[in-house]
Write a protein that binds this DNA or RNA. Structure first.
Lengths: 246, 246
DNA sequence: ACGATCAAATTGTCATACATTTAAATGTCA
DNA sequence: TGACATTTAAATGTATGACAATTTGATCGT
């Protein structure tokens, strides 16, 4: 592991990249302890604060964890799904909001991805999956639920659908797409009528999955997408009418 | 933006979280300049190195960028697709390798996601998309191409398919899944026969997309998945036969 | 043998200083 | 006046040294 002190890039960035490469390429294995900050500083011929900045960069990506004390230090982290989810979601959320992604495009992507999971979910859905779907259906039928609460339940329902496919890679990928859309979905104010319509779609999806009828579930998902797009268009047009000058 | 100096968590982590929240919630907008490190240190009542560690954490997530000089400082970064891709890919790659994801599960997810893009790609594929697919087909027909080169071309072909859907959210999500699978795919050594088979599948996919025949493309993709799974199983069984004792 | 205490190692934080880079202000000359 | 060189100031990047906090393990006494 070498760095170039004459490069234009920051030393801490170079050091972080060197260690990151070692982890990604498997030269540093999970739970292995890195040298102490003092030793790293000596190895790379930099000061301890510089090494620390590099380690913080890696910690921010959940690539390492640190512990104080005698047997402490920096350890290669076992990247768990919850940690990866979190990063995926913040990144995806910012990407959507900063690049002017339209509700339409985000919605299209979300339902396309969910349809990708549906045949597998129809095949493999467990009683637990169906149970959590039914739980959300009950919640969605509650008129006292706030709009945010309805959206959250919507996300939970679709999460259950995705997890029903029983494929961790799909669950991971979809988490970002579905959760990142929540801010956009939260812009929608649901009428009692639209809630009822959505919940009815959801019920039909749950029924189809329980029956293992992938085709039916796909059809309903497509209809739900069309309906959601309609809701989104209504919100957007209502929002664009009173145009605030900048 | 406040932090709790008596919390168990590191100060730099708390500060990073506070600033990150401000960015995600839109209280800090793109290209806005953060206060200088000295000012932040005073605001949070911590030392400058601590602030710097916090900023490096954010820089590692591409949430901010820093510039030296008189008009320098830390600026809220416009999260671009290339930056987001990069992080998605390293995270997804590690997630796959560290959680013992099977070739089977990864392959299943990849093709499921690609099938999600296919109907849209059949609808919207541009001449440019088709051209880059054809380019990769030519490359794949070259016997002199190394296994890594063939895999890379395979990835490029499927990237073109995904991009053909003309939905940036899908492109972003798929990039992680497809690229993260490359290390697993690289374990496969292709015979001349298997290369020819795969390229034939690819050709049929390109033809179907050009004709706008989504159904055909979906069928071929499913067949290609089955074939790829066969190749993967062969590699795995060959690899597990000469079992090294640990 | 067991419990309490202490020492050592390591990260977390602070204070300060200096180096480097960049842009703007200033000065100089034709 | 205008263009170019110089200086200056502000900011980040890096270095050094010290101390605090925390955890482990060993030592010691009973």
């Amino acid at each position: 592991m070498k760095i170039d002190p004459h490069s234009k890039a920051d030393l801490s960035a170079q050091i972080a990249a060197a260690i990151r490469d070692a982890i990604v390429e498997g030269r540093l294995i999970v739970d292995e302890r890195l040298p102490s900050e003092a030793e790293l500083a000596e190895h790379f011929a930099v000061s301890r604060p510089t090494v620390r900045e590099a380690l913080k960069r890696l910690a921010a990506q959940s690539l390492i964890r640190t512990a104080r004390g005698a047997a402490g230090g920096a350890f290669v982290n076992h990247l768990s799904y919850p940690e990866a989810y979190g990063q995926q979601i913040t990144t995806a959320t910012l990407l959507l909001s900063m690049n002017g992604i339209s509700f339409e495009a985000a919605c299209e992507a979300r339902f396309a991805l969910e349809r990708a999971c549906t045949p597998l979910a129809a095949l493999r859905r467990t009683p637990a999956t169906l149970a959590s779907m039914r739980t959300e259906l009950v919640r969605q039928a509650d008129d006292a639920l706030s709009d945010e609460g309805f959206c959250a339940s919507d996300v939970a329902f679709h999460r259950a659908l995705v997890d029903g496919a029983d494929n961790p890679v799909l669950s991971y990928q979809l988490a970002g797409a579905v959760e990142a859309m929540q801010p956009l979905m939260n812009m929608i104010t649901f009428t009692a009528r639209s809630r009822e319509t959505i919940t009815r779609f959801h019920t039909r999806i749950a029924d189809a999955l329980e029956a293992g009828a992938a085709d039916t579930a796909l059809t309903v998902l497509t209809d739900l997408e069309a309906y959601t797009q309609t809701l989104g268009r209504d919100v957007m047009s209502a929002r664009s009418r009173p145009r605030k000058p900048i």
